[in-house]
């Protein structure tokens, strides 16, 4: 494969559905989890990520399980299962486990690896009963909002109080963001705590633009992976 830094996003087979809206604000690209992500968006990525920065990580590996046996299945794979719905926990190898309801769990790949752990896990045989795979990789887009103004940005778009005092790291809110349904996860990803937003993949470009619009007053904008990991 050719050098990703000089590549156009549409030349890579594994890319986010929202690539058109961020392609213009991209300096260089990288391949992670076999998919295309923005390596650097501009000159001030680090400063931007410190205030509020946005990146599309849709291509990164994730998987999900649903059913009565879903929790046991994850435990058998040595992953931590949060003890209540709408909580997240981090495993020993950096995977984040989301408990979205009593019987629904998602696993997000770590910032540090290339998604191989999650991929291997997704290929494990399922229990014979009461545990079903969820294809959240393809149904949802994954946008990450980083920076100290992240809660202030979200306050403009979302009715749930996402300030640190009410929504610390490890909490999940499944709610409406800019009138579109989304799962908001507060977790440590890479060097800093971030909000991961999962929305219907068809709404990704809409949500991307809505978030950037809300971020403008905080002088935020798109950032690259290098600023987070």
């Amino acid at each position: 494969m050719s050098d990703p830094t000089s590549m156009l996003p549409d030349q890579h087979p594994r890319r986010s559905l929202a690539w058109r809206v961020w392609a213009a604000s991209t300096q260089s690209l990288a391949v992670k989890s076999e998919g295309l992500v923005v390596q650097q968006a501009g000159e001030n990525d680090s400063a931007m990520a410190e205030r509020c920065g946005l990146i599309d990580l849709t291509v990164l590996e994730r998987t999900g399980f649903r059913g009565r046996q879903a929790a046991e299945h994850l435990e058998s794979l040595d992953l931590p299962v949060p003890d209540a719905p709408n909580r997240a926990a981090v495993g020993t190898q950096g995977e984040t486990v989301l408990r979205l309801s009593a019987r629904e769990l998602w696993v997000l790949s770590a910032a540090e690896d290339d998604g191989q752990h999650v991929r291997r896990m997704a290929n494990q045989p399922l229990p014979t009963k009461d545990c079903y795979a969820l294809y959240c990789q393809h149904s949802h887009a994954w946008l990450v909002l980083a920076g100290r103004y992240r809660a202030a940005v979200m306050a403009k778009l979302c009715g749930v109080d996402l300030r640190e005092s009410a929504f610390p790291v490890g909490h999940i809110a499944q709610t409406s963001v800019a009138r579109s349904n989304a799962i908001v996860v507060h977790h440590q990803w890479g060097r800093q705590p971030v909000f991961s937003l999962f929305c219907d993949s068809a709404s990704a470009d809409y949500l991307w633009e809505a978030l950037l619009d809300a971020m403008a007053e905080f002088e935020g904008g798109p950032v690259g992976l290098a600023a987070l990991v």
């Binding site: 719905p85 709408n86 009715g159 709610t175 409406s176 349904n181």
Partner: peptide
Amino acid sequence: MKMMPCPLNGLRNISEF
């Protein structure tokens, strides 16, 4: 806005339901 208590997600705006 009117609120509804969701058994899973807590008190939310009625427009989420």
